[in-house]
Design a protein around this nucleic acid. Structure first.
Length: 218
DNA sequence: GTTGAGCGTT
């Protein structure tokens, strides 16, 4: 069956997890299954994907039924070229619960019968927002650095075309002030009723009052 | 359409 990773973790009690690194971003479990199944009994294959784009993250987990088969797969498939990329097969060091495991085997004792050994605190995973935001921040930082370098190089090409005809970056705020002014006018001048329109129009102070802290819908 | 150190779900 090629329905791996679509029914949750089946049973990792008697399975050995292998970590596959450096795989292509388009490599799926179906592509790795025939390759790893040839060297042993593959119980499950899981490839973490991004929840936003749904694309693979570049590594996969292959669970074998026996340790000897898993070791053989590591020895045979480690450094194998898959989809034009040299993959790296090794035993998983951490489990699904971020627990230390030995040779792909979970060290945690069987919770059956004994129940919870200690007070189980409601430890939740990372908040998706913070987790993804952190990753985005680092990713964006790298991209910006690269772009900055490119721009610097392009600037050295020709020094001209840098005349004063360049519009200053003030028009942005100018437009904003204009909108704010218009709104203010509308508020102060609800209609041609009472008040002194000429006075208000003529009394345009050179320095408008500071904008109050209002909620701006972006 | 791109990328590349690492350790995982429904």
């Amino acid at each position: 069956m090629s329905h791996f990773g679509r029914s949750g973790p089946p049973d990792i009690s008697d399975t050995y997890s292998l970590l596959i690194l450096n795989i292509s971003f388009r490599t799926t479990a179906d592509d790795l299954f025939p390759l790893f199944d040839k060297y042993g009994k593959v119980v499950d294959i899981f490839i973490p994907k991004d929840r936003r784009t749904g694309d693979s993250r570049g590594f996969a987990f292959v669970r074998y039924k026996y340790a000897d088969e898993a070791e053989k797969a590591v020895d045979r498939l480690d450094g194998r070229e898959v989809d034009g990329r040299e993959i790296t097969v090794q035993f998983a060091k951490y489990g699904p619960n971020a627990e230390r495991i030995h040779r792909g085997r979970v060290i945690e004792k069987s919770p059956r019968g004994r129940g919870r050994s200690r007070s189980r605190s409601p430890r939740q995973r990372y908040h998706d927002d913070d987790y993804y935001r952190d990753r985005d921040r680092e990713y964006r930082r790298k991209r910006y650095d690269d772009i900055d370098d490119s721009r610097e190089r392009g600037c050295r090409y020709h020094g001209r075309s840098r005349s004063r005809s360049y519009t200053p970056h003030n028009h942005n705020r100018s437009r904003y002030d204009d909108e704010y002014f218009r709104r203010s006018q509308s508020t102060e001048s609800p209609g041609p009723h009472t008040r002194s329109p000429s006075h208000s129009l003529d009394s345009r102070s050179p320095s408008p009052p500071p904008p109050p802290r209002v909620h701006d819908e972006e």
